[in-house]
Simulated scan of single mutants.
Amino acid sequence: MSTLLAIVFDGAIYASWLFLVAAGLTVIYGVMRILNMAHGSFYAIGAYCAASLTGWYFSGESGASPYWSYLLLFGCAIVGGLAVGVLVEQALLRHLRGRDEILMVIVTYALLLILEDVVKLVWGVNPYLAYQPYRLLGQSSITDSLRFANYDLALVAISLVVGAAAWWALNRTDKGRMLRAVIHDREIATAMGVNVNLMFAITFAIGSMLGALAGALTAPAISVTPGIGVEVIVLAFAVVVVGGLGSIGGAAVGAVLVGLARSFAVHLAPQIELFVIYGVMFLVLAFRPQGLFGQLQPRKI
């Protein structure tokens, strides 16, 4: 029973992190039909901003309460994600709108490589550690032999809030209904007076901030080093493919499946941990190529 509880809690924590990473990627694809490979760089920028500012905050120069550092993490995600998202969308992607999806994958992959070098130029190649917010919340005992960091449990709650907020925004607000109209038919939405260009810009900025948020919230739990963006985009891609490209609910289900599968592998068969994520993706795509919640897309001829 203790092992089963550990598998479930570990899987839930890992799934919450995967969902935060994948949410921005699937939002951007769902609206703009861009599989944004540079999303991993947004994650890295959020992590580096959070790690560097957290280090300064706890160096004693700020003089403020340590609990305000959590607000700092969210601030890094909003400012960093918004800045890089608006810059990329306005300077590059808006000029390529409507091009073939494969071309957009190539362009955003090239952007990923460029931003990886920009990160090294700005922050260097040495690791950044921002462990203080992680330790600050302490630990909780699930059983006598099973303890988890409260920060990890808070990450689960944040992912639930983000998922619920995304669903509410898309299904219960006027802007969300307009966005869904753009998703279903851009031409008709434009003809009915919807500012599609503005919708695309807002969507990309929100997706960028979600990617940066995942990085900022992960920074206290890891060593922030060069290359984390490349590692993350592969995992995020696996999650959105399993759930179905463009589906928030699919991203959530995909994250849970991948998280639990990895947790089972870590505890029961650690030698296959590296392969189990892609095994889940293979099994899903073998029977449902569009993903669990993906919709078959009609092709105009």
Rank of each mutant, 00 (worst) to 15 (best):
P226T: 10
A12F: 02
L285V: 15
D152W: 00
G40D: 08
L283V: 05
G243F: 10
R99K: 13
L146C: 10
S208G: 15
R299D: 12
L213N: 01
F287C: 06
A47Q: 07
R147Y: 07
W56C: 01
A269W: 00
L210W: 08
I102T: 09
D100R: 02
P298K: 14
G30C: 10
V107T: 09
V31S: 06
A12C: 06
M178C: 04
V239R: 06
G244V: 06
F204I: 14
I188K: 14
E89L: 06
L112C: 07
L198Y: 02
V266K: 03
V125N: 15
A110V: 07
A255C: 04
L103S: 12
M32P: 01
G98R: 12
M32Q: 09
N150W: 02
L198W: 13
L257I: 15
V86Q: 09
G40I: 13
M199D: 08
V162N: 04
S2L: 06
T173C: 11
L296W: 08
V253E: 04
N36V: 10
V118Q: 02
M178S: 07
G215I: 00
V161I: 15
R33V: 15
L73S: 05
M37P: 00
G55I: 02
V194C: 13
H39C: 08
W17V: 09
L260H: 06
L260D: 08
I222E: 11
T143A: 15
G24Q: 07
N171V: 12
Y29F: 15
F200S: 14
G46Y: 00
V234K: 00
M32C: 11
Q295C: 02
A221N: 09
T203K: 09
K175C: 07
P226A: 12
E231G: 13
G81D: 03
A261F: 07
G246S: 11
V266T: 09
A157W: 01
A221G: 10
I233H: 06
V232K: 13
L285A: 13
L153V: 05
A216H: 03
D117P: 00
V86A: 09
R33Y: 12
C76F: 05
W168Y: 14
G193W: 04
F148R: 05
A252N: 04
L155W: 01
Y14P: 00
F275G: 09
G215P: 03
Y109K: 00
Q297S: 11
E101F: 00
I272G: 04
Y128L: 14
L217H: 03
L92M: 14
G249Y: 04
I102M: 12
D144I: 03
D174N: 07
L96E: 04
A189M: 03
G138A: 02
P270A: 12
I222D: 12
D117R: 03
G176S: 08
S65W: 05
I222N: 04
F264M: 10
L245C: 08
I45P: 01
Y48C: 10
G75Q: 05
V105C: 14
P133R: 04
L121Q: 10
G207E: 10
V161K: 08
V258T: 05
V156M: 02
Y57T: 02
G124R: 01
A130G: 10
V284L: 14
L268G: 13
L72E: 04
A201R: 13
C76G: 08
F74G: 11
G85Q: 06
V230E: 12
A181R: 10
R147M: 07
Y131M: 11
V242K: 12
F74R: 01
I106Q: 11
A269E: 07
A44D: 04
T26K: 03
G291A: 03
T225I: 13
R33N: 15
